[in-house]
Amino acid sequence: MSGSVGYHGVDLYGAEVDPVQVRRHIGMVFQKPNPFPKSIYENIAFGPRIAGMKSDLDDLVEDSLRRAALWDEVKDKLDESAFALSGGQQQRLCIARAIATSPDVLLMDEPCSALDPIATLRIEELMDELTADYTIIIVTHNMQQAARVSHRTAFFNVEVGDTGQRTGHLVEFDETGKIFTNPSVQATEDYITGRFG
């Protein structure tokens, strides 16, 4: 591995960096919705509770669910299992869970790849609202989605080495508008024009 991932000037791969502390600043939403096998309420409350919050969890749970545009759908069944929700609702619950610990950054790893187009649209609208308060880093294989939701785009590609090992590398990073209309690297242009991928 080469290069570094900086967060406010700190190299996150540095030896003295505690991954647990990093995760408290950078929330994560996974590819497949992965709620805890607990009630909707407990899904949100777990993060703040282990972070040491004891009081006012009710308000925090409501606030997080409202921000994730889920409150109206679940406010009457907070005690029910999170598994009773639909896939799209589960993913919004996971987003609510991630923002409940008030991170600075939300990392979303293909958050819509397991969802249908309507649920995807809701998540994308939600992301748009959340950008007011959070920096969102989204990984996606869907070019239209990247063009729709992002302000800046980084294009990653994979190189296959001599011995067959696959190494990902950053090809180009720029304003989304520029990447999709006038990229400066040939590989980026090949990808956005559909010559491969």
């Binding site: 995760r23 996974f30 993060g47 282990i50 610990t101």
Partner: peptide, 27 residues
């Protein structure tokens, strides 16, 4: 116990022990 559960728990900032104690063991 699926690994997604551990990832979800670590993802909200739980330590390894908190993950085991509150998420993995109950399941």
């Amino acid at each position: 116990v699926p690994d997604e559960l551990r990832q979800a728990s670590m993802g909200v900032g739980a330590t390894k022990w908190e993950t085991i104690r509150h998420q993995v063991l109950p399941v």
